[in-house]
Design a protein around this nucleic acid. Structure first.
Lengths: 151, 151
DNA sequence: CGATAGTCAACTGAAGTGGTCGACAAAGTA
DNA sequence: TACTTTGTCGACCACTTCAGTTGACTATCG
């Protein structure tokens, strides 16, 4: 249950683009220094985001990276899936297509519920939300619960 | 965002013990065949569950594994943490103790919310729930939503 | 042309995943 | 006591993923 550096970097880089002036390319190096991400690694990641259609690029002098679509139409889940594949998997299998025998039969439903609850957060937060620092009410409610901050 | 084979096996094995007659040890081999888990690997996992105080063991003929505590006091989260460590981590760091600069500042809260939503499922399902195939209402509600089953 | 900046494939070391193996220790039975 | 049954433990293994790095290349602008 861990978010890899790659996924974390991808969301942060996308957030930088969402916060930038629309239509103005941001250089890879600017993103890298702003978020303390190794430039070479970042470029690998941005390439994947471009292939996924989330960002586009401008080459040459005064080039850089831009969002390919409106910031409020891209969710955190979209970005993670672009670089990591499916949001939730059990041994590489999607929760909806696994089934167990005997005493563990009900476990399949638990994994489905887990994915659903994961989605309820990650699908509902957009890059625009992060860029302007204002999360959806339902997400904020989770964050404001003191229990959420207990290790 | 993946559940490893180890965590999956651990929960299934614990579910078998939860479903067994209380006080009667279940042999490792019985668990292995019932859930199609490689025996040697399973023994590694059961050893970790024992160290975590979730199960106990009985050696010798007619020995085997038993739950160390009541099945309704052990959550799926407890089992996963016993074999995998923290439920959610970003690059190995707990969500509550990370912070980002600039445009990504709000992302930290997203990770906290993600963990909270994960917990809302995994902390609330016990081994007893799985063993008798009846999940808590809040979890069932998630599962019954058609959206939850969409790949 | 030449500087700038993205593109891509290949490579690497370290860690994690998913096991396997063999020697050993405890407990009950004959 | 010997023997069988079962768990205990550490070591080991092949393979994949993670987190980058390197270097050659290509597009774009002035």
């Amino acid at each position: 249950m861990r978010i890899t550096a790659k996924a974390d970097y991808a969301v942060r880089a996308a957030a930088v683009l969402a916060a930038a002036e629309p239509g103005v390319p941001v250089k890879g190096e600017a993103i890298a220094t702003a978020q303390r991400i190794p430039l070479n690694f970042l470029e690998n990641i941005l390439r994947e985001l471009r292939r996924a259609g989330i960002i586009r690029t401008q080459r040459g002098a005064d080039g850089g990276y831009l969002l390919a679509v409106a910031a409020n139409t891209v969710s955190v889940a979209d970005v993670i899936r672009a670089v990591e594949g499916p949001l939730a998997a059990i041994q590489g299998v999607r929760p909806d297509q696994l089934h167990y025998d005997g005493a563990a039969a009900a476990l399949a439903d638990v994994w489905v519920a887990m994915r659903a609850s994961l989605r309820s957060v990650l699908e509902n937060v957009t890059l625009a939300d992060i860029a302007r620092g204002e999360l959806p009410k339902s997400v904020k409610r989770l964050v404001n619960d003191a229990e959420a901050w207990q290790p």
